[in-house]
Design a protein around this nucleic acid. Structure first.
Lengths: 173, 173
DNA sequence: GTATTATCGTTTCATAGCTAACAGTTTTGA
DNA sequence: TCAAAACTGTTAGCTATGAAACGATAATAC
């Protein structure tokens, strides 16, 4: 759960940090936007926390990483997806997809198949064993999501989702 | 920017996905908590987006990863920190700290020093070159934070931070 | 119709990240 | 006192991650 700043209990940046930034970065304290710092830091911390929680409590049961699980989930939904499409969907590099697919293939959860017409294209296809793994993991994964979000009321959940989607859209994430 | 679910423009899960989950995971659609799905997915997506943006637009100038930057930031503030403390602060394993510290040492941004009294303890200390790197990077990093958060009003920024901090506290992230 | 260009996936090489094993050091306990 | 236990950091061995180079294939241009 990597984080940059140190906050106190009220979510305020420590005075010592403010002073250091002021002196060392030659940035007067009134040039620092504390709200922006807080938004970015807290989003990242929650994201890392939930990734770690899921990998530790759910995905480790099947020896899968978050990204492996994401890819296997896509294949569970779509059955067969081109390597290139997987890279776009999960927004990791094609090299990473290549590696992860290799790992999933070693576990016999997926297999590869070259397109017969355009032989540059490779499809990745989920196996029955892969489907069984997802049938086992998905309900537990979703339970984890519910737990994590349960710290907010339904209204708050809708609200935070709306704000996050705006950030995604306008920042082109 | 790894993500699991596919949403349409309104932030709704695709019907095809609902059906698949329903059939394959034997989870009736009314057992799925869409708000929880949305919260978790969108938080993760924003986090990955901001990490990628920072690494691409800011940190790559000095060849630093997000975690390397976090560690160097801590050292910039505190000057000298024990390896063990760095692992706690950044919440990565001590093995990772060992590796990253080695990389930072190779770049001459930090150096190590063994405690003279308790020789099990190793301090990591920032060099002048490390400080110069932070003086260069930090203002650009903070500018990136401001940009990302600027998609929200000040009131929304305060609100989302409050909700995220509650998730951090109650989930023990 | 062939040469150039574009596309796709893998490989290579580097860092990041984890768990487990290890080595050295200090503390504890009887 | 000194052997056992606890602590700290590194190493070993694995997967994940990306950029760049590469090899194979297909599309384009002339």
């Amino acid at each position: 759960m990597v984080r940059v700043y140190t906050f106190n209990d009220e979510g305020e940046l420590l005075q010592e940090e403010k002073d250091t930034i002021n002196q060392l970065a030659k940035m007067p304290m009134d040039m620092l936007n504390y709200n922006a710092i807080s938004v970015v830091t807290n989003i990242y911390r929650v994201a890392q926390g939930l990734k770690n929680k899921m990998e530790r409590e759910v995905l480790s049961k099947q020896g899968l990483s978050w990204t492996s699980f994401s890819i296997l989930y896509d294949l569970w939904i779509w059955n067969s997806v081109e390597t290139k499409k997987l890279a776009e969907l999960t927004a990791v590099s094609k090299a990473t997809i290549s590696n992860i697919t290799k790992t999933l293939e070693k576990k016999e959860l997926v297999y590869r198949k070259t397109d017969t017409r355009d032989r540059r294209i490779t499809y990745v296809i989920i196996t029955n064993k892969g489907k069984e793994v997802m049938e086992d993991l998905y309900p537990k994964f979703h339970q984890g999501e519910i737990e994590i979000a349960s710290m907010l009321t339904e209204k708050e959940q809708k609200n935070i989702s709306k704000l996050l989607r705006r950030m995604i859209r306008q920042n082109d994430f």
